[in-house]
Design a protein around this nucleic acid. Structure first.
Length: 507
RNA sequence: GGCCCCUUCGUCUAGUGGUUAGGACGCAAGGUUUUCAUCCUUGAAACAGGAGUUCGAUUCUCCUAGGGGCUGCCA
């Protein structure tokens, strides 16, 4: 069996969204499990849509997700260059071959003329006019123009495009690994532009030529490409490569969480959910869209979540490391239907990974967030905070946002609890407790608990009367880790200060 | 509009010509926890509709509906 070689071929027209990352992921998993090669090819044949920084963004996103590239523009490889704009000359040879063999022709129609033709046909009731076997007869191309006229135009340097000459009445069958055989009628297809007036190929030609030259064995891409696959099959045939044509697998799309349509940037803005792997700042508008990374997602969780959007292992296991995914992945188990992205499930995945991390690791991951907030804390202290908070967090930043009281004095007290529980019968209790705590050395949770309990007994009070108040004094809220743990970690001095502050305020 | 793809709980999905249609997220209830969270238990929740094939269809076929994609000198 020949080597498995797959490619991820984005165009650098903006940030990758999670559908793109998932496509990259499936390619990557397939390559790794079959000991094949994972190739990155930048499809930048449309210079008009080039967005600065997009290629770097793609690279960084893949790298963050742990999808290491074997061959690509940065790492090179035996079939480079891996940027289509640098392969200009390569395509020329093949477009000329198609021309020579009569499978393609030159068309001199200006964009205006094309638009006029379409407008005319729309008026005649054709909602999507095509440049095809019928209409090409009325257009300016090397099929309709006299040979000398063509020569003249060429000599004059008149711009032209090269179009495929779509055959009539042919059935073109596409074998898709996910959907089985899909067949198309060539009459329904149009004479797609293969080479643009600027001399660069369109996706269709470049993609077929490169996949062949780069010895791609499997084309795993989004479902939006299925309708143009018959065109690609024809191109392989006309170029004489049908025997070694890659296998195709068209992935179902990722749909938006609510409503209709596929996931888009607007959904992210509207629903406050990330749609990009890492934060993207639009160079034109300066607008920033937050990424999964910046939201606090672990790359492992992100990848795990993504893998399950359209694929499943056929077992009950849901938590997978990248290596486990590589072992378990199979194209056969990719679903056919579009998958709706669910932020709640994504959150759950992240929480599962967070729970697995040890306290020190969490602490070092939390550190950058604290620095951003201007919060200082000792390493050992941070580790302890993580130990107490990790059961309560789904994301690293939650450890801070849900546990600010570990790093700063309480700003706001839960007034409902204060109103309900802070009364004249508990006030003396805390005055006495404060005194008892003063004498505890070392200030450890068992001793603190003992002090609280014995004072409770003395005053004949119940946990429910006392503990919520103690908690609000120290944390401001009734939610949080076991209160004696919190007290110990805060330390005697801080605990006493917070008690004083509270009692003064609500005296 | 045309072409193509798709359709199991709200969501991600498993599954089979005869099953109590399974799991996960979320939701609800209960338990554990002095709180919150975790954890445990339980519950509600689905085969789009209609024909046909069949002793029997969620499963196979067709039709309908719904959803999605494509329909550019974009990818």
């Amino acid at each position: 069996m020949s080597e498995i070689r797959v490619r991820f071929a984005p165009s650098p027209t903006g940030p990758l969204h999670i559908g793109g990352v998932r496509t990259a992921l499936y390619n990557f998993l397939f390559a790794r499990q079959s000991k094949g090669r994972f190739i990155l090819r930048i499809e930048d044949t449309d210079q008009k849509r080039f967005v600065p920084g997009a290629e770097e963004y793609i690279l960084e996103s893949l790298s963050w997700a742990g999808l290491n590239i074997d061959e690509g523009p940065v790492q090179g490889g035996p079939y480079g260059p891996y940027r289509q704009s640098e392969r200009r000359d390569i395509y020329k040879k093949y477009s000329e071959q198609l021309l020579k063999d009569g499978h393609a022709y030159m068309a001199f129609d200006t964009p205006e003329e094309l638009e006029a033709m379409r407008e005319r046909m729309r008026k005649e009731g054709n909602p999507s006019p095509q440049y095809n076997a019928i209409t090409r007869q009325y257009m300016k191309n090397s099929l309709t123009l006299p040979a000398d006229e063509v020569e003249k135009r060429l000599a004059a340097g008149e711009p032209y495009v090269i179009r495929i000459k779509m055959p009539r009445n042919e059935e073109v069958k596409v074998k898709d690994l996910i959907r089985g055989w899909v067949s198309f009628q060539s009459n329904q297809l149009d004479d797609k532009v293969l080479v643009k007036a600027d001399g660069l190929p369109t996706y269709h030609l470049a993609n077929v030529v490169d996949d062949h030259l780069m010895k791609i064995s499997h084309v795993i891409r989004g479902e939006e490409w299925l309708p143009s696959t018959p065109l690609h099959v024809l191109l392989y045939r006309y170029l004489g490569w049908e025997e070694s044509m890659p296998e195709f697998a068209h992935l179902p799309l990722i749909l938006r969480p609510d409503g209709k349509g596929k996931l888009s940037k607007r959904d992210g803005d509207r629903l406050g959910i990330p749609v990009y792997p890492i934060t993207w700042k639009d160079p034109a508008s300066g607008e920033e869209s937050m990424g999964f990374r910046e939201k606090g997602f672990f790359p492992e969780a992100f990848v795990n979540m993504l893998a399950f959007l359209g694929w499943n292992p056929g077992s009950d296991q849901e938590i997978f490391s990248l290596d486990e995914l590589i072992k378990a992945f199979s194209i056969e188990r990719i679903g056919k239907a579009g998958a709706r992205f669910d932020i709640e499930k994504a959150r759950w995945f992240n929480q599962q990974f967070l729970k697995q991390k040890d306290d020190a690791e969490l602490a070092s991951m939390l550190r950058p967030y604290l620095e951003k907030e201007g919060v200082k804390a000792e390493d050992a202290y941070l580790v302890q905070v993580c130990r107490l908070m990790k059961e309560r967090a789904a994301f690293i930043p939650d450890i801070y946002s849900e546990g600010k009281y570990f790093f700063a004095p309480v700003e706001a007290y839960d007034e409902k609890i204060v109103a309900k529980k802070w009364n004249d019968s508990v006030k003396p209790f805390f005055t006495a407790l404060r005194q008892r705590l003063t004498d505890i050395n070392p200030f450890e949770k068992e001793e603190i608990e003992k002090a609280v309990k014995s004072e409770m007994e003395l005053k004949g009070m119940k946990f429910g009367q006392v503990l919520p108040v103690f908690r609000v004094m120290l944390c401001g809220t009734v939610a949080g880790p076991p209160i004696f743990d919190v007290a110990e970690l805060l330390g005697k001095e801080e605990v006493l200060m917070r008690m004083d502050r509270f009692m003064e305020r609500y005296a």
